[in-house]
């Protein structure tokens, strides 16, 4: 190392990167939502399915009040606790989908970027075929044909993320596949499997993982869209389903906007946080502008 002369960067060009206050605020919100999603049944929340009919207040829906912070819906169910419970399915589906997408798409991308040749051609063609469908159309088509539960909906959304993730992983792998340290590893007799795991993967995984939060935002929105149209998990409370319930009839939306608007707020803040934190991470790790 001492033989190569490297000009040290001038003091003033070194910018100490910081994630910033906004990033931690967003991470706090995501953490809070995740905490609520996991522990909702043991937290002191009102039951999301119980009927809080109050004869003194007439017919539900009831407007937001001290006893029901976000009001109630037409069946006198508490919108606040339903909005919190909605985080469970939305976040679980988002997380499972993006994990599956990264595992499958990531490995396909790394393998096709490393081996090139016919493996690359086949998987790249597969990626383009998947990308030839507008994603919501493919999601609707597949979810309409299956028995919709937490796992299958997650897997359908995971399938949708395979192609974009795979293409990114492939592009990142191509950058490293012919670098000196890979050649060196091959020279000393490392097997392909060892090279991929020890040499390629660490270089590809870090920038890719900074995209995971952005991918999760996309998956949460996609799940919301499916639920809104009636194609998400059949049983249980989801944000998309709550918004649909509050806006399906114009009269409900006009007279009791809180039924739709509080779930919208929760969904919006969560997606905003995932996007913002993901964007900061991407800048932090200096990943090139790519659309996921």
């Amino acid at each position: 190392m001492s033989t190569t002369s490297v000009t040290p960067a001038p003091e003033d060009t070194i910018v100490r990167k910081k994630l910033g206050f906004g990033f931690w605020l967003c991470v706090t919100w995501i953490g809070l939502m995740a905490f609520i999603a996991i522990f909702a049944p043991v937290l002191p929340l009102k039951s999301p399915t119980a009927n809080f009919l109050d004869s003194a207040r007439g017919r539900p829906p009831y407007a937001p009040s001290w006893s029901h912070w976000f009001g109630t819906d037409k069946d006198a169910r508490d919108v606040f606790s339903r909005s919190l419970y909605g985080a469970r399915i939305s976040l679980t589906v988002g997380f499972t989908a993006i994990t599956a997408g990264f595992l499958i798409g990531g490995s396909l991308g790394v393998i096709s970027g490393y081996y090139k040749g016919w493996i690359d051609r086949i998987s790249s063609f597969g990626f383009i075929v998947l990308l030839s469908f507008p994603s919501l159309v493919l999601a609707i088509l597949l979810t309409s044909l299956i028995d919709r539960n937490l796992l299958t909906v997650s897997l359908v959304l995971g399938l949708l993320s395979i192609a974009p993730v795979g293409r990114l992983a492939r592009a990142a792998t191509l950058q490293y596949a012919d670098r000196e340290f890979v050649l060196a590893a091959r020279q000393i007799g490392a097997t392909n499997r060892r090279i991929i795991i020890k040499e390629i993967l660490p270089n590809v995984a870090i920038p890719m993982s900074s995209l995971a939060l952005l991918g999760m935002a996309v998956a949460v929105v996609a799940e919301g869209g499916l639920a809104f149209l009636g194609f998400s998990v059949q049983k249980g409370i989801t944000w998309g389903g709550l918004i649909q319930l509050g806006s399906d009839a114009s009269k409900t939306l006009q007279d009791a906007p809180w039924i739709a608007f509080f779930p919208i707020l929760m969904l919006f803040l969560t997606v905003l946080s995932l996007n913002f934190a993901g964007d900061r991470l991407r800048t932090f790790f200096d990943v090139k502008e790519t659309t996921l």
């Binding site: 869209g225 809104f228 149209l229 806006s247 114009s250 939306l253 006009q254 608007f261 919006f268 997606v271």
Partner: peptide, 19 residues
């Protein structure tokens, strides 16, 4: 960008059509 389009649809409908 963080606002899903079904949420935008509901908000626009509420503000401009209903209110």
């Amino acid at each position: 960008v963080a606002m899903p389009n079904f949420a935008i649809a509901v908000i626009l409908k509420f503000v401009f059509s209903l209110k």
